[in-house]
């Protein structure tokens, strides 16, 4: 299981990257993250919503009420322009961290 600090830090870039593929809703976002991480990246489901709320307030994403397949009300989120820029920044930073870690690992074990 991944440490909660890392899970919290990765929430925003993951949400932004998932929404970059198209609009989605809370439950689907969580399921997608679980599936892609093989269940290793697990959020307390409810905690996703304050994060989404904060991102909406910051103008990174926008929300609209729609209908689910069963006719229930459902809130859909999509990326805004500022969100795209924030996502690019996150990607650059995480790629840089990954590159540094990979480089250090190579030096240690090769």
């Amino acid at each position: 299981m991944i440490r909660k600090e890392l899970v919290a830090a990765s929430a925003e870039p993951l949400i932004l990257s998932l929404l970059a593929r198209g609009e989605s809703y809370g439950y689907a976002i969580i399921q997608e993250v679980k599936a892609r991480s093989g269940g290793k990246l697990q959020w307390t489901d409810g905690m996703l919503y304050p994060v989404l709320h904060r991102m909406e307030q910051r103008g990174l994403i926008k929300a609209r009420w729609g209908e689910s397949e069963t006719g229930r009300k459902r809130k859909y989120y999509s990326l805004k322009k500022d969100g795209k820029n924030a996502m690019k920044k996150h990607h650059e930073q995480w790629t840089m961290v990954h590159a540094v870690l990979s480089g250090l690992k190579k030096e240690q074990y090769v």
């Binding site: 809703y25 809370g26 439950y27 399921q31 489901d45 409810g46 919503y49 709320h53 009420w65 689910s68 229930r72 009300k73 459902r74 809130k75």
Partner: peptide, 16 residues
């Protein structure tokens, strides 16, 4: 509205 969203999440998970 916030409760509606959480309830929707609950129902989706129950269904699954």
């Amino acid at each position: 509205a916030r409760l509606d969203e959480l309830e929707g999440h609950l129902r989706d998970d129950v269904q699954l």
